[in-house]
Design a protein around this nucleic acid. Structure first.
Length: 516
RNA sequence: AGGCCCGUAGCUCAACUGGCAGAGCAGCUGACUCUUAAUCAGCGGGUUCGGGGUUCGAGUCCCCGCGGGCCUACCA
């Protein structure tokens, strides 16, 4: 192992650490009693009712013990202010030499405690002459010494300066990104609130949260290339799941009326603003229901998320104000295409569709079937125009090998996607439960696979066996949680809603580099 | 996978047609007992992503590589 070269500032912090130890201070103690947070203190005294003062009024209200990270330090001779940050926010602390044990202020606080160090403080709350609620520190304790300097952000009139702009730095060292950027912490809190809302929404309806295999001998449920791995003891090839769908529907066969799973799927694809190889998916299946019913559920659930995350059904996202208030517009895919392009595609054969695509400037190649052409036209001319939440219904059967045929429109399936802000937020259908049709659809997938489509699904005989025992009429739903999080937090990249997005290895060439 | 852009101090960024690598913050020394982008005086800090080339001279130009961003492709 080569020794990492360390900066001047890091070297100094290591010296400080040694100095602290030689003075008898443990730079990494075991615990600290916390009785208040920045948020509770600020709330308590910003209401204008409880006014703190140094005269000792209501001392039982004002005595607090808190812990956090030093974010700024301002020393003025024998007294100093510093800001520290806990999980709820920042609070200012005031330290006087004469309030601390002999020598502590000069030889420890001033010299050996730095921005980035974790400290515990105990004292009373007061308001400074400038009006800022602060804690007057009477006990100060180092809780963990930081050996690396923390980037320092400055703020004036609400504008933040010296924000770390290097995306690579932020993704690789997310702990630093989170520590210094409150807005990044907020994104992930919103994401957590979003998922918690969805979970309780589904739990309250009596649906059962289940866990199905990540490691699968056969993958399916979506059109995507899988990751492969190997199990040593059984000496077998395994796939990381690309979807939960086929296992969850086996559970509907087994007698659960409603099951859902929120979990990671893995797809062996490129990375982009909208794609991370591992991502979080919600899938829900409800027996005795169809896709019309499912649209109502989606409206309710997403409306609940909007209220939970933003406190309102109206949300400003980028330049758009979006209303998630029910009901949302519902429009069949072919009608939506006609509205935008003037082309009525329903009933056209493959050559006629190719001609329409050409008229619309959509590129078509020979491998594309009728369904794919329609999908391309939709994706290019319609999807980006749908800003307010909209249900697009009734898709071509070729694109949906697991969806039930439409009850009245030949060649289509009972499927919908909800589109919002120009992007898909969910995908759902009346589930195909006729084992004969399901077998035929799988066989069509196999033909596509043989023709070179490496995303075609393999045939899953056990799944067909399950259907042969009888699966109720069922409505199914899939929601890309990361993309929903992008929407509700206004983030432009999926990497900004995933704590640790996939990155190339940081240092040099990987050891097990493949042949050059 | 292809195209475009980027990589300079711990962080944010400068450095003209190729001519001594700089500033703010952070850090260090000193002053200051209600400051808040604290202030004031002084000081240190660089493998300019890595390797090669052109040149008297390269952060700058050329080639190769590494890493990142955006777009395209892929991706229901």
């Amino acid at each position: 192992m080569t020794e990492r070269s360390i900066s001047e500032q890091e070297a100094r912090r290591r010296e400080e650490l040694a100095e602290l130890e030689s003075l008898g201070h443990n730079p990494y103690p075991y615990e600290f009693e916390v009785t208040a947070t920045a948020e509770t203190v600020l709330e308590m005294f910003d209401d204008g009712v409880n006014q703190p003062g140094e005269d000792g009024t209501a001392p039982e209200l004002m005595r607090v013990s808190m812990a956090g990270r030093i974010m700024a330090k301002r020393i003025m001779g024998k007294a100093a202010f510093f800001h520290f940050q806990d999980h709820t926010g920042r609070l200012q602390a005031y330290v006087k030499r004469d309030d601390l044990p002999e020598g502590y202020y000069n030889s420890v606080f001033k010299k050996l405690l730095d921005i980035g160090d974790l400290v515990g403080v105990e004292g009373f709350v007061f308001r400074t002459k400038m009006g800022e609620v602060s804690i007057h520190v009477e006990r100060l304790e180092l809780l963990s010494k930081a050996l690396r300097p923390l980037p320092v952000l400055k703020e004036l009139d609400g504008k933040v300066y010296n924000e770390v702009s290097d995306k690579e730095f932020r993704y690789r060292q997310r702990y630093v990104d989170l520590a210094i950027h409150p807005d990044v912490r907020d994104v992930f809190r919103k994401r957590a609130r979003m998922i918690a809302t969805i979970r309780s929404f589904l739990d309250n309806r009596g649906y059962v949260e289940v866990e199905t295999p990540v490691l699968q001998p056969l993958y399916g449920g979506a059109a995507a290339r899988p990751f492969t791995t190997h199990h040593n003891a059984l000496d077998m090839k395994l796939y990381l799941r690309i979807a939960d769908e086929l296992y969850l529907k086996r559970l509907i066969v087994g007698g659960f009326d409603g099951v859902y799973e929120i979990s990671k799927d893995f797809r062996n694809e490129g990375l982009s603003r909208f794609h991370n190889p591992e991502f979080t998916m919600l899938e829900l299946y409800v027996a005795w229901k169809d896709y019309n019913w499912m649209m109502n559920l989606v409206e309710e659930m997403v409306e609940a998320v909007a209220i939970a995350v933003h406190g309102s059904t109206d949300v400003v996202i980028g330049e758009n104000r979006i209303s998630f208030k029910r009901p949302w517009k519902r429009i069949p895919m072919f009608d939506a295409i006609e509205e935008q392009t003037g082309e009525q595609l329903f009933g056209l054969d493959r050559d006629e569709l190719a001609a329409a695509a050409k008229r619309l400037g959509v590129e078509v190649d020979k491998t594309m079937g009728a369904g794919k052409i329609i999908d391309e036209i939709f994706g290019e001319h319609v999807e980006p125009t749908l800003i307010q939440p909209t249900f697009i219904t009734d898709y071509p059967v070729e694109l949906s090998p697991l969806a039930k045929r439409h009850r009245s429109k030949p060649g289509l399936v009972e499927r919908f996607e909800a589109i919002c802000n120009g992007k898909e937020i969910c995908n759902a259908f009346s589930e195909l439960n006729d084992p004969r049709d399901q077998r035929a659809r799988f066989e069509e997938q196999v033909r596509l696979g043989d023709a070179g489509d490496d995303e075609a699904m393999p045939i899953d005989e056990d799944y067909i066996r399950a259907l042969e025992y009888g699966m109720p009429p069922t409505a199914g739903l899939g929601v890309g949680i990361d993309r929903l999080a992008m929407l509700f937090t206004g983030q432009p990249s999926i990497r900004d809603v995933i704590l640790f997005p996939l990155m190339r290895p940081e240092e040099g060439v990987a050891e097990d580099e493949e042949s050059a």
